[in-house]
């Protein structure tokens, strides 16, 4: 599930439940709709409510990273549980995406 909050140019999306191949497609569509407003300059993923994530989540985040970069924006992630954090670390995503405490 996805909830969002927009504050000035920042869109914060909070994901809950499992983020895998079966859920990533729908989340990707919802996200693209949310960030379609060109006034959004920063996208923040709050993953602290996720119960599970696999590499389908990494692919989804890389896709949104590219979309935000194309408009000169930025992206950040709050990982939440240790497994999600390890997976993002392994993918190297923290080298291009800001990690929030």
């Amino acid at each position: 599930m996805l909830t969002h909050e927009k504050k000035r140019g920042t869109m914060t999306v909070r994901l809950t439940g499992d983020l895998d191949h079966s859920t990533a497609g729908r989340i990707r569509e919802e996200l693209d709709e949310l960030i379609s407003d060109p006034g959004i300059r920063r996208l923040v993923f709050d993953l602290s409510g996720l119960t599970f994530m696999d590499s389908s989540g990494i692919g989804m985040m890389i896709g949104r990273y590219k979309a935000m970069m194309r408009r000169g924006g930025s992206i950040a992630v709050q990982p939440g549980n240790a497994q999600v954090d390890r997976l993002i670390e392994l993918s190297g995503l923290y080298q291009i995406i800001e990690k929030l405490a």
């Binding site: 590499s55 990494i58 890389i62 997976l87 392994l90 993918s91």
Partner: peptide, 14 residues
């Protein structure tokens, strides 16, 4: 194009 990360086997191996 389907935003597959190509990380599947790397995750399993790690």
């Amino acid at each position: 194009s389907a935003e597959r990360s190509g990380m599947g086997f790397t995750v399993m191996e790690s």
